[in-house]
Amino acid sequence: MTEERTATIGDNNPPPYDVAKLEAVKDKARAFSAEAAVWIKKGEVESAEEAEQLNDVVAKGRQLVKGSDDLRKQEKKPHADAGKAVDDAFRVVLDALNRAVNDLKPIAAKWMQAEQAKQRAEAERIAREARQAEEEAARLAAQAARSNDAMAAAEAEQAASEAAAMQKQADKASKQKARVGSATGGGRTMALRTVKTANIENLNLVFRHFSTHPDVRDVLQRLATAAIRKGEDVPGATKDEQQVAA
């Protein structure tokens, strides 16, 4: 019998870090956690000696944090480097492809814009004709009502139904969008997409509109904190100083 461990499921797919090293720091963390729990339960320091002891515990904790973090960085480094190498290797290709695609898209967009303009003009023409047909039908109906002519009434009715059909066609035409399908069936259909962005003309008005937005508050908080730390005065903000153990 050998002392070698029996191979088990997952042996061929080990985690991407040194398990033994991780277990070692885990043990240390567990021990430190238990040690810290005693102090946390105590909650306060009663003498200078105790304060010094606590300082050592904190220092130990800091060193453990640093050691564990260094180990994390060390374990991660080969993977991060490999990832970066892959990114670098593919960047040229991806950049070139993306640039080419981005150069092609405006050509299709130009065509679709021209098509859309044509479709709009056509839709307007159909709508105009539908309106005219409707007016004509109304005129015929009024005329038929005045003359009590059954034939004229039937004609007016027919004109009205034709006008309704034209109106339907006009509605449909107005909703039509320019598209470019695939020649072979392999590509997806391209269409124009409306991209909306705000163009800020009056910053103060926009600011007033969003003044209660939490994101605005976060940005101002960051700017004001930085300014106050530099020693500047910020109107509307006061300096808040707190003593924390360092």
Partner: peptide
Amino acid sequence: ELERLHRDIDQMAATHAPFDV
């Protein structure tokens, strides 16, 4: 045009498989 593409692009002969442009 579609018939012409079928004549000229050999890969389109695989009519029962997703077409990879």
